[in-house]
Write a protein that binds this DNA or RNA. Sequence first.
DNA 1: CAGTGAGCGAGCTTCCGCTTGACTT
Length: 785
Amino acid sequence: MPKNLVIVESPAKAKTIEKFLGKDYKVLSSYGHIRDLKKKEFSIDVEKNFEPDYEIPEDKKALVKTLKSEAKEADTIWLASDEDREGEAIAWHLYEVLKLEPENTKRIVFHEITKTAILKAIEQPRNIDINLVNAQQARRILDRIVGFELSPVLWKKVKPALSAGRVQSVAVRLIVEREREIHAFQSEASYKVTAVFLVPDADGKLVEMKAELARRLKTKAEAQKLLESCQSAIFTIEDITTRPVKKSPAAPFTTSTLQQEAARKLGFTVAQTMMVAQRLYESGRITYMRTDSVNLSEYAINGSKEAITNMMGDKYVHSRHFSTKTKGAQEAHEAIRPTYMENAQIEGSAQEKKLYDLIWKRTIASQMADAELEKTTATISISNASETFNAAGEVVKFDGFLRVYRESYDDDVEQEDESHLLPPLKKGQKLEYQNITATERFTQHPPRYTEASLVRKLEELGIGRPSTYAPTISTIQQREYVEKGDKTGEERSYNVITLKKEKITDATRTEITGAEKAKLLPTDTGTVVTDFLIQYFPSIMDYNFTASVEKQFDEIAEGDTKWTTIMKTFYKTFHPSVESTLAAKNAHKTGERSLGNDPVSGKPVSVKIGRFGPVVQIGSAEDEEKPRFSPLKKGQSIETITLEEAMELFKLPRTLGEHEGKTVTVNAGRFGPYIYYGGTYTSLPKGADPMEIELDEALELIKEKAEAEAKKHLKKFEGEPELEIMNGRYGPYIAYKGSNYKIPKDIVPEDLSLDACMEIIKLQSEKAASAPAKAKRGKYAKKKA
DNA sequence: CAGTGAGCGAGCTTCCGCTTGACTT
């Protein structure tokens, strides 16, 4: 019978630790928090010193029961939750809920999961730090107050079911403001001049050498003048400088940097990265994946050293300790690293292998020597102009960590590739040009946020925690404040002036610019809500709000300030602003914009956020006649739509005429334009204009659809009305009780018997069940209303 | 992946941080 009960936060951790501690110890997990404010209620008694009303959530009741009975059996209970604010609170809630006694309860912490670290922790138990617990309660209660008081304001003033919070609202603000910056951006043109010189290499063979003019030229006239000077110029190597450059490896991964690199190098979404990392953690391949620490244990540093020595030799080793620069980091865990550095590869799914490989390389590289490079720059003078060209080359003298890992950068910066060697050059050497080109270039607007770059920005501002980055990104998309989408580029023409064989030619070329993929774009709702919150609750929307309340939580943790004092001060100004905002009577709805008057009826036309999203409205609710509404089309926005565009929207639905006593109309729906006739809907073919289509064309389309529909039903069986063999877009399939099952290619669907169908269904449902990765609904899966 | 398209209006919606479940017999 074990005499000791140890409680940690994560079950994977419990399993590992139990092995270290032997049979006198039983190790269980709390699975995070076991108690929280009530889910549906405010649960804070403001009058009674902000007293919180905690409850054990339904899905934790069984667990708590188990923990209680195990605790009763044990002589000593060791609360070993993480050493941070949340961990301390978990320990305290356990203590309260399990009704533990001070005599036999001990609080311990460890930073790395090794036998020595744990045994050492057991030798140094302490008491629960109630100040730290209170700092957590203050954090929790403040977030509840902000969330549960602001959200209802939005329900009333903007749209039901919206939400606001300390983290999510600021995340949306970042995206809204970036979009405005982009719209206000004026790009500036300049001319980049590049030259290709022909230079003899070591064997005397002529090779090309690229050089760039030291500065960009502002105007076309300037560029032309320079090329004219170059026509008859002599080019001389004026100077050659060589300097050594050292590059150092990046720190090991935290949650945020892992998410960023996995997005750039593997194309993973933030949620995908976390799901794959979770599996690697649970199978014991990597350390804990939700961390803000770059620290590696001595064990990991030694393991890396050994792995590097074995694989590449001593000279590649350089053991390093990294320190965190992140605001508000709590460092309860190690950096994300392989559990065993000697495992360069693992078994698993393709995604698991790729992510593990990334983690292994990053960790190993962080313990490797600097890369030593030699950068050579040659300055080339032009005999009849004061400008100079620069040719740059780079040689790797010692690859160091670059042998295994190179950090990626966001693709928004044009990276010049300098990783090439210059041919042998001498000072005073004369050069022949092959061609010199002046190309018009434009300054770029700041890039839109990706999931990963938003995480980086939030971390930089100290907003959110490793465990919430992925859920936050999912929430702001679920609320339809932002959407992930592509921006198609615009065509732009630019000048290219070329000098070749003493002849100057001038050409205009076109390029597609500004195309962006999978970027976060604000919706109208996101923009309106952000503007509203900034106007009425500027302090909550301030980028420094979190940082400043964190400072106060630190004071609570240090025991310098009472947590209720801080809550009182906050509530004293926050709550009245909620009350006054709710009470304010506005002439127009939040975010409403007037477009002018309907040229036909003279009634006012406006756009606003309606019950189901952005709408145009003709007339007002006070009019005798009801106002007319139309939702905005995809791509239109409240901020930019014109009166003409808005009036276009009211031209649908359009009645085409009658057919056999029933009317035929065209309308635009969520999935594009369609024809409605006698209870059936027929989509218009791609590119067809609902404003142009005639009655006879429409009837033809309806007929075609009916024919296709008839061909869809291949076979039915008497005994099983719920089963049908159908012909779909992707070939024949079996429809059965709301699910569909593919028919293998080598089977003629018409020949299938009922039994054969059931067999296919059985086989495919088994397959789905045995592939949990696919069947498992994503934790951050988008829920559609 | 396998087809979608409507609109009375009562009642509900919501926060941030910890952590992974997995009802058949």
